[in-house]
């Protein structure tokens, strides 16, 4: 079985300066910007039109939000460390950092679900309570799904997909880089979500 790679699967294209996968992820992120952009626009329109709660009221506990912000930013750092380690041909260290990233994101999800969602639902504050909580559940929930997706991808590279490192370390490192791009974007979305829902 001969298997040849398509052009620019590994090497960067001279014009765009990216290999296929990286370019693809950037385009995907552009569409993600439009997805979350539409939701932020919806938030603005609901806030200016509807009977949104006054911004002085403390609706969400900012301490959980701040802790989660810290966790996600740290996970972004460990994600870069993982990619750098693979790039420096140190798969052991790379895997360690990838595991730390997974653990940090699981902690994020745990706090989000256990101390925020379930707590609010227990108090009777469900998505239908008001448009504020509706858009809050919707946007943070969609963001949470993105986190979950990232965790699944990382776990894949740590387990089933780990064999690619032995076959083609270059391609494996590229895939970690693409995962990292996605991960930083997901963090960035949270950087916007935190002030919008917890502080403003």
């Amino acid at each position: 079985m001969s298997s040849e790679l398509l052009p620019h699967t590994l090497e960067a294209h001279p014009v765009t300066g990216m290999y296929n996968g990286k370019f693809g992820v950037w385009l995907f992120l552009a569409s993600e910007v439009m997805l979350f952009g539409a939701l932020f626009s919806a938030y603005i329109l609901l806030r200016t039109h509807g009977d949104f709660p006054s911004h002085k009221e403390t609706l969400l506990d900012y301490r959980f939000g701040a802790l989660n912000t810290f966790l996600l930013i740290t996970s972004s750092v460990t994600m870069v460390m993982a990619w750098a380690s693979f790039k420096l041909n140190d798969p052991g260290k790379g895997k360690m950092y990838l595991w730390i990233t997974v653990i940090l994101s699981c902690a994020f999800l745990f706090i989000k679900i256990k101390f925020e969602y379930l707590h609010k639902i227990h108090e009777g504050i469900t998505p239908s309570y008001s448009t504020f909580y509706g858009i809050y559940y919707c946007m943070t929930g969609l963001h949470g799904l993105h986190i979950l997706g990232g965790v699944v991808v990382m776990l894949y590279f740590l387990t089933v997909g780990a064999g690619l490192w032995n076959k083609n370390p270059h391609q494996f490192t590229n895939r970690i880089e693409c995962t990292g791009l996605y991960w930083h974007f997901v963090d960035l979305v949270w950087i916007f979500l935190f002030p919008v829902f917890y502080l403003l």
Binding site: S31, E32, M34, L35, A38, L39
Partner: peptide
């Protein structure tokens, strides 16, 4: 790429 995601957002809402 850029026009469909807002409808996805609207569909979710």
């Amino acid at each position: 790429l850029l026009a469909f995601p807002p409808l996805e957002a609207a569909g979710v809402l």
